[in-house]
């Protein structure tokens, strides 16, 4: 297997405040990696750095290209969809307009319509609320919308920041099975940040554990899952 995303020596800072101190990690083509760590470890920052939302340095190779100095919108146009922390809903637009925005970089109207049907099929709640102003959706509905909007890009790589945030346990299961389906059927690679380490380790093939801006542990998801010490020290479950 070859790597879709390969990151070496990733540094990032907010102004003068340095948060990431040289991370190395990767995502296989069609694979799922997960980034675990305590609150404030720098997981969100890592995802932001990957798609150029904050100042960063180091090499970020995506699909053979160096995207370390590309603008966010250009990275997205290369097929990287980011479900941000806080969902990033366009609150003043309707649900459907939000989804259309997700497909903004694509041109085939027919394909977009088909994918719209598909995400409505996966998230029937969104179909019910299609004409509603997205800012008035419930928190969980907005989370579904964020994931659905990312899918509308037809991405090759998805960066998911706590996709289960605010979702009811049953919906979480459903959402992860949707992600699994997308991963298997569409060959979409994923980098998932999750508090829900138990669930995501079932899904992922590789895991990286982050602590105060550095990677302290990495391995296959199974290794991390089965290692009592790591679980107790870093994942707390």
């Amino acid at each position: 297997m070859s790597k879709l995303l390969e990151v070496t020596g990733l540094h990032a800072s907010y102004g003068d405040f340095r948060v990431l101190h040289g991370l190395d990690f990767s995502v296989e083509k069609g694979g799922i990696s997960t980034l675990l760590g305590a609150n404030g470890a720098g997981k969100t920052t890592t995802l932001r750095a990957l798609c150029g939302m904050i100042k960063r340095s180091g090499t970020i190779r995506y699909d053979g290209n160096d995207i370390g100095s590309k603008a966010t919108e250009e990275i997205v146009r290369m097929g990287v969809a980011h479900v941000p922390e806080g969902r990033g809903t366009f609150t003043g637009l309707t649900t459907e307009e939000n989804l259309e925005c997700g497909a903004m970089t694509r041109s085939s109207r027919a394909e977009i319509a088909r994918d719209m049907e598909q995400v409505y099929h996966w998230f029937p709640r969104l179909r019910e609320r299609r004409a509603q102003q997205a800012g008035t959706l419930s928190g969980g509905e907005q989370q579904m919308l964020a994931i659905a909007r990312a899918l509308m890009l037809r991405p090759r790589l998805m960066l998911l920041d706590e996709p289960s945030f605010g979702l009811a346990p049953m919906i979480v299961q459903e959402m992860f099975s949707i992600l699994r389906k997308v991963n298997e059927e569409e060959d979409v690679a994923m980098l998932i940040v999750e508090q829900n380490a138990g669930v995501v380790l079932e899904l992922a093939d590789t895991a990286f554990v982050l602590e105060t801006g550095g990677i302290v542990m990495s391995g296959t998801a199974a290794e991390i899952r089965d290692n009592e010490t790591i679980r107790a020290a870093y994942l707390g479950y």
Partner: peptide, 13 residues
Amino acid sequence: AAAENPASARLVG
């Protein structure tokens, strides 16, 4: 979309 939420607008390209 760009006027309402520039950061999210960039994230959809």
